[in-house]
């Protein structure tokens, strides 16, 4: 296979890799926030359900979770899962990453001094105003470095979609390697992941700088 054909093939994989990445980020960050609310809930039933969920997501391999999500509708309901490959990957990544993000949100929210809530209460802010205007912006600043870590891990974790034979870049690279018996596709893949993460780190650093106007 010529180098340009290989790049063509890999780039179609890159688009899919990037798709997994952005869908997961878009869905798992808000979900993670709501999960963290559940984790901090005063309702013991909800709190414990969320605790079990987080513990399962963090305690089992992501690859296994992806396969479970994909085969779940068939195993349980005997449903035909032919069109379910891509949704399964997005769901799998989202519920896994939401669990990690939830714990990060929780650590950030719980680290906020109680005085901020009290000051907001005295000024008459409602609970949701307090959270959205006062607490959340400060939480985001506090947790941004941890979020960056997870996001970088996600870029690399997208390659686990190969376990569902989704044609993201790593799967394509493996197939070309099998055919041509050369390591070049892996090197291209490595460069892609590195550059992707370089951009992610750059963007996140930029956000951190934007938020560094206060302590």
């Amino acid at each position: 296979m010529s180098f340009s054909t290989m790049l063509m093939q890999l780039s179609s994989g890159m688009v899919k890799t990037t798709g997994i990445f952005f869908w997961t980020i878009i869905l798992s960050l808000p979900l993670g926030l709501f999960v963290s609310f559940g984790r901090m809930s005063k309702n013991p039933v909800l709190k414990n359900i969320v605790k079990i969920y987080i513990s399962l997501m963090r305690g089992t391999p992501l690859m296994l979770q992806l396969m479970m999500v994909y085969y779940f509708p068939y195993l349980l309901f005997g449903m035909n899962i032919r069109t379910f490959r891509f949704p399964a990957i997005i769901i799998g990544f989202t519920i896994n990453y939401a669990a990690y993000f939830a714990e990060i949100f929780r650590s950030g929210i719980e680290s906020m001094p109680v005085g901020q809530y009290e000051a907001a209460k005295l000024l008459g802010y409602s609970k949701s105003q307090t959270f959205i205007k006062i607490i959340l912006p400060q939480v985001i600043k506090r947790i941004l470095p941890s979020i960056t870590n997870e996001v970088i891990t996600l870029v690399k974790d997208t390659s686990l979609a190969f376990s569902l034979a989704y044609m993201e870049m790593f799967t394509v690279a493996k197939q070309i390697v099998a055919k041509d018996a050369t390591f070049t596709p892996f090197i291209v893949a490595a460069v892609f992941y590195y550059v992707f993460n370089f951009v992610v780190a750059f963007v996140m650093e930029h956000f951190e700088k934007k938020l560094s106007y206060y302590r």
Binding site: P113, G115, Q116, E118, A119, A120, L122, L123, G124, Y125, Q129, K133, I134, P137, Q138, K141, Y214, R215
Partner: peptide, 30 residues
Amino acid sequence: NSNFGLVFQSFNLFPHYSVMKNITDAPIHV
């Protein structure tokens, strides 16, 4: 609650708001 205000020992200003926004945000939005 609109009858009273409280000045804290530890100020509890909102660090991400400027001085002006700290003072004006609640009167405007609350």
